[in-house]
Simulated scan of single mutants.
Amino acid sequence: MNSPFTAPSTIPHDPAAEDLEHQREAIAALGHQLRLLVDATVRTAASPATLDRLAGGVRALTEQLTGHRRQPADIPEVDEFPGGIRMYSPVTGPGSPLAPPMRVTPMDGGVMGRCLLGIAHEGPPGYGHGGVSAMLLDELMGWACAAAGSPGMTISLQMRYHGPVPLEAPLRVNAQVTGTDGRKVFVEGSIATEEAPSTILVQADGVFVTPAPEAARALFPALNNAK
């Protein structure tokens, strides 16, 4: 009798998929360490001599990132665009030193994001920058469009700030599509803390538009070469 530990897998071996997953894991690991570095950098009260020495060390590390550098219009090979993984997104990307990063899950009628803002995202002391709140909502509202089958781009985003968003507190970000009109998609979003999810701190109303095929080809020329 075959042991469950020795039985052959029914899933075909896919070296390309394994390589992609390994690449994503490495990107996420580097992104995590960079976020720790950014956090330490904005907290430190180190001396100028220490900062000068560290700047030289960081410069030396940067010089090790050799090889091809993607251009702004390039779509990273590790991404799924549109409507999928974005490894370097400043909101959800595990490889981004700027991202919280927000974790997104589907929910009834929309999507939910969970994250925690650090001092690098600070506006008023102890609270998140208002522009960061807008960025979180804009991103998640775009996810809501994609989840509804209408991936689109923002054409309008109206913000209402009811209270400051605390730093280093688990946040709950919600977004849901409320209607459509042709290629336009109407979306609502909100930010609250996990501790008080019914107390809305920030609200947003957005209008997104799904580009026509010819517009999408012009906006994202790399998609024209995708297989």
Rank of each mutant, 00 (worst) to 15 (best):
Q176E: 12
A169G: 01
A147W: 11
E139T: 09
V173I: 15
G163E: 14
V132Q: 02
V177L: 08
L137R: 02
Q176I: 01
L136F: 08
P151W: 13
G142N: 07
D181W: 04
G179S: 09
G163C: 06
Y161T: 08
A147I: 02
V132P: 02
R172V: 13
W143V: 08
I155N: 02
G130I: 10
P170L: 05
D138R: 11
G179D: 10
M135V: 06
L167E: 01
L167Y: 06
P164N: 06
I155T: 15
C145P: 07
S156A: 14
A144C: 10
E139H: 15
S133C: 06
A147L: 08
A148N: 02
H162Q: 15
A169P: 06
W143S: 01
M153V: 15
T180Y: 04
A146Q: 07
L136H: 08
P170K: 00
L137E: 07
G126H: 00
D138P: 13
V165K: 07
W143E: 04
Y127E: 12
V165A: 10
P170Q: 02
V173F: 07
S156I: 04
P164H: 01
Q158G: 03
E168D: 15
G163W: 04
I155Q: 14
L136T: 06
V132M: 12
C145F: 11
A134N: 11
G126C: 05
S133Y: 09
N174A: 01
G131M: 07
R160E: 13
E139Q: 09
H129E: 11
P124D: 15
V173E: 03
M153K: 04
R160K: 13
A147Q: 09
P166D: 01
H129R: 12
A148V: 01
R160C: 00
R172Q: 15
S150M: 14
Y127S: 12
S133G: 13
V132R: 07
H129F: 11
A148G: 07
Y127L: 12
T180F: 12
V177C: 02
G142K: 06
V165L: 14
I155Y: 08
V165F: 10
T180R: 13
Q158P: 00
V177Q: 02
N174I: 11
D181P: 04
A169N: 02
A175S: 03
M141R: 05
T154M: 09
T154A: 08
S150W: 14
P170G: 00
M159D: 10
S156H: 13
R183P: 00
I155H: 03
G128Q: 11
A147F: 15
A144P: 09
S156F: 10
C145N: 08
T178D: 12
